[in-house]
Computed example of a mutant assay.
Amino acid sequence: MVVNLYSKVDCPLCEKAKAVLQELQKEYDFQINEIDVYSDDALLEKYQLMIPVVEIDGEEIDYGMIQKEILRKRLLRELNS
């Protein structure tokens, strides 16, 4: 499974979100695909005020202050289906 993390350079919240995802990788088998919103104008327009954004299977799971428990619940649901 691949988890997309929409972020940007020099973003403290993005670094925290990545750390949360890396912690969850110790419990669950998934890859982190980090995407810089400044690499695509459409992504920048869509996410610039929301970043970081965590997306699993095309669904935005959480954004801004990423909460570990929200991600854990969604990962469990995805892995058990």
Results as ranks from 00 to 15, higher is better:
Gln31Val: 10
Leu21Trp: 03
Glu34Asn: 04
Tyr6Lys: 01
Ser7Phe: 02
Lys18Tyr: 06
Leu79Glu: 09
Gly58Cys: 07
Leu24Met: 11
Gln48Ser: 11
Lys16His: 07
Leu21Gly: 01
Leu75Val: 07
Ala42Trp: 01
Lys46His: 09
Leu79Ala: 10
Asn80His: 03
Asn33Gln: 15
Pro12Gln: 07
Tyr47Ser: 03
Glu23Tyr: 07
Lys73Ala: 13
Gln67Val: 11
Ile56Ala: 03
Gly64His: 07
Glu60Tyr: 02
Asp62Cys: 11
Leu76Glu: 14
Ser81Thr: 12
Gln67Leu: 13
Val53Pro: 01
Lys18Asn: 10
Asp62Arg: 00
Arg72Lys: 15
Lys46Asn: 07
Tyr6Arg: 01
Leu49Thr: 09
Ile35Pro: 01
Asp57Lys: 12
Leu5Pro: 02
Leu24Trp: 10
Val9Leu: 10
Ser39Cys: 09
Leu49Phe: 12
Leu44Glu: 12
Glu15Asp: 11
Pro12Thr: 08
Cys11Arg: 01
Ile70Lys: 13
Ile66Gln: 02
Glu15Ala: 10
Glu55Ala: 07
Ile32Val: 15
Ile56Asn: 00
Arg74Glu: 15
Leu71Ile: 15
Arg77Phe: 13
Glu34Asp: 09
Pro12Tyr: 07
Ile70His: 08
Leu24Pro: 01
Glu23Gly: 08
Pro52Glu: 04
Tyr38Trp: 13
Asn80Glu: 11
Tyr28Asn: 03
Asp36His: 08
Glu55Pro: 03
Val2Ser: 12
Ile35Arg: 00
Val20Glu: 01
Arg77Leu: 14
Asp29Thr: 13
Gln48His: 09
Glu23Ala: 13
Val37Lys: 00
Ala42Val: 11
Cys14Leu: 05
Arg77Ala: 15
Glu45Ile: 09
Glu15Thr: 09
Pro52Arg: 01
Glu27Gly: 06
Asp41Ser: 14
Asp36Tyr: 04
Val37Phe: 03
Val9Gln: 11
Tyr6Ile: 08
Ala42Cys: 04
Glu23Thr: 13
Cys14Thr: 02
Cys11Leu: 04
Met1Phe: 08
Lys16Met: 14
Val37Gln: 02
Asp57Thr: 08
Gln22His: 04
Arg74Leu: 05
Val54Phe: 03
Ser7Ala: 14
Ala42Arg: 08
Arg77Pro: 00
Gln25Ile: 05
Gln22Lys: 15
Asp57Val: 10
Lys18Asp: 10
Val3Asn: 00
Ser7Lys: 06
Met65Ser: 09
Gly64Lys: 06
Asp10Arg: 09
Gln48Pro: 03
Gly64Cys: 08
Leu75Ile: 15
Gln31Ser: 14
Asn4Asp: 11
Ile32Met: 05
Ala17Asn: 03
Ile70Gln: 10
Asn4Gly: 03
Lys73Gly: 05
Pro52Lys: 01
Glu23Asp: 15
Leu75Cys: 07
Ser7Pro: 00
Ile51Thr: 02
Ser39Tyr: 02
Leu43Thr: 06
Val37Leu: 13
Asp29His: 11
Val37Ala: 00
Lys46Phe: 06
Tyr47Pro: 00
Asp57Cys: 12
Leu79Trp: 05
Glu55Trp: 03
Leu43Tyr: 07
Glu45Arg: 11
Val37Gly: 00
Lys46Ser: 05
Asp10Pro: 05
Glu78Lys: 14
Asp41Trp: 02
Val20Leu: 05
Met65Lys: 10
Tyr6Phe: 13
Gln31Met: 14
Tyr38Phe: 15
Ile66Gly: 05
Gln31Cys: 07
Val3Pro: 00
Ile70Arg: 14
Ile51Gln: 02
Ile66Phe: 00
Ile66Tyr: 03
Arg72Ser: 15
Leu79Ile: 12
Ala42Lys: 12
Pro12Phe: 09
Ser7Ile: 04
